[in-house]
């Protein structure tokens, strides 16, 4: 399922025009993205939570050439699945 499939499904199930479903899905993910960029933790019961993890700098290697490279510190979004969804997926 991609974003347009989700928009179509929302339009059907939510009984709304496609245009409205598109605006809703866009607003939903924009709000999520903005929260992640603010490094605000997102907690959605029954689904899961997102937080930003910070990783320090380290010396890595280019796996192709074996050359040592300095990897700068970085931030990565991390998702932890919620209990309900975890159980629904594994059943």
């Amino acid at each position: 399922m991609n974003k347009s499939d989700l928009i179509k499904a929302l339009s059907d199930r939510g009984d709304m025009p496609l245009k409205e479903a598109r605006a809703a899905v866009e607003a939903f993910f924009t709000a999520m993205e903005e929260a992640i960029l603010r490094e605000d933790r997102i907690e959605i019961r029954g689904f899961g939570s997102f937080c930003v993890k910070k990783y320090g700098a380290y010396v890595g290697r280019n796996p192709k050439t074996g050359e040592r490279i300095q990897v700068p510190p970085k931030r990565l979004p991390y998702f932890k699945v919620g209990k309900e969804l975890k159980e629904r997926i594994d059943s």
């Binding site: 399922m1 991609n2 974003k3 499939d5 989700l6 499904a9 929302l10 199930r13 939510g14 709304m16 809703a24 899905v25 939903f28 993910f29 999520m32 993205e33 959605i44 029954g46 689904f47 979004p77 998702f79 969804l85 629904r88 997926i89």
Partner: peptide, 27 residues
């Protein structure tokens, strides 16, 4: 509130079916 619930439910249903959910620009 209904629409937010529906979006989350539709995503959960797709995942439950074993489908990959791809949201471009997000993940």
């Amino acid at each position: 509130a209904e629409v937010v619930g529906l979006i989350l439910e539709l995503i959960k249903e797709a995942l439950e079916r074993g489908e990959k959910v791809k949201i471009s620009g997000f993940g």
